[in-house]
Design a protein around this nucleic acid. Structure first.
Lengths: 233, 233
DNA sequence: CGGCGAGTTGAACGTAATCAATTGTCGTGG
DNA sequence: CCACGACAATTGATTACGTTCAACTCGCCG
């Protein structure tokens, strides 16, 4: 990779905070890679060969059962880190939900580099702790929330996480976004079927809390009521 | 704390691998604390004041909703690490399921120490990555598995995690253990009600796969069939 | 205009939740 | 040692939520 100093996620990814010479050394190890929507870059159960920073796009992290049932266990956005460092095999797959751009490292090179650069490991630790918090929050959703609560939670979560991306000229952009997931994927993320997802979305629409101009676009009209719905019956 | 060199979890906890002088410096910061069954040492939503290594006993990590619904998002055993470093508030509670013994640090002291000792942070990172793997595995369970599959998975998971504890003279100890959870807690961990937990256990018993001599004790008779049950319909 | 895939809507079903009653277990005190 | 009370667990009957199966609609592209 030529130059990290112009990277669009340089201030938010785990590379942030590295000294200039450290950054250029890391840059030598990485290469940019474009991945198309639907393309899988890490395979569940396979040897963990690569890790990467997400520069652009949205990807899903998923696990599946022998008979094909699939659970999405994470959604990653620009500046997030993907892959499983320090482990022989990857316990999950990573697949692009939109066209995406990655900054890819071989796992062995990254593992070695990070052991020699505590600041990088520290950033990675913080990120992993945050990811664990999110995973546990989602366990609460999957274990205890009703279908309606799940959908409301998803919309709010997507709103904030997509919102963290750019700096927003207007507040409205928080309440208006494109879902990077289709109905099946929403179901796989929430532990519901497409039919239930569809019905719950229709319900929210008919209650006037949201609008759905097209299949991907969401407009949140009543954020506070949606928040109430997300947290209690 | 006097002396880490005699600690029963010294080879397995994150302290393992520290140099002797590092270890004694860390030991100065920690103190042993006994906690009784049912006692909570970290509160969800409160300031994250302490972190700790588990020396003995079993504890649950849990999150709850405004109306009281509770989800257990983790179960921790001796040598495991608890608490939320590098974060103002703890997003979850930690409560003893059995009488337990902890090696407690103030979070601020631990945060500072670990930033100066990359080896410690590295161990913590590996552990956090493993915990994240487990959380995601559990998301698959909560999102996609049937009640029967969940119970089978739990029994196997408990068997192996309790088994990692001691070195076993005989193989049978893997197939025979005491559940540190009551039925309500099993329900809160699996996203089921006590009644469903009870019915599924009774079913496994009547099929001869397991025996339940008393409320806590479990004997696994047919491990392979239980494994099959845990993974597919 | 036709056909295909994604999404929505409807009807019937099934799994687990809920409500309710009973049994079992453990700790305490007679 | 047994009787008692309190709580945990089991079992049964009913309900409800989400799933499943199926038909239909919409938008898009050839």
């Amino acid at each position: 990779m030529k130059d990290c100093s112009q990277c669009v996620v340089r201030n938010r990814a785990i590379c942030a905070g590295l000294l200039p010479d450290e950054l250029s050394a890391l840059g030598q190890l990485g290469r940019k890679q474009m991945v198309g929507r639907g393309q899988t870059v890490v395979w569940e159960g396979e040897e963990s060969l690569i890790v990467a920073n997400v520069i652009a796009g949205v990807l899903k992290v998923s696990m599946s059962m022998a008979d094909g049932r699939e659970q999405i266990v994470g959604v990653v956005f620009p500046s997030d880190f993907i892959g499983r460092p320090f482990g022989k095999d990857s316990p999950y797959s990573v697949t692009a939900l939109t066209d995406a751009e990655l900054c890819v490292f071989t796992r062995s090179a990254f593992d070695g580099f990070s052991r020699e650069h505590p600041e990088l490991e520290h950033k990675l630790l913080r990120r992993t702790l945050e990811e664990l918090d999110r995973a546990r929050e989602w366990m609460l959703l999957l274990g205890k929330k009703s279908a309606g609560e799940r959908i409301a939670t998803l919309l709010l979560e997507m709103s904030t996480r997509l919102g963290e991306q750019g700096c927003h000229a207007d507040i409205n952009s928080l309440n208006q976004f494109d879902l990077p997931l289709d109905r099946q994927q929403i179901g796989d993320l929430l532990g519901l079927t497409i039919e239930t997802v569809s019905r719950q979305l229709t319900k929210l629409k008919s209650q006037g809390l949201i609008a759905l101009p097209d299949r991907k676009h969401v407009i949140i009209h009543d954020r506070s009521r949606l928040t109430q719905l997300a947290m209690a019956a």
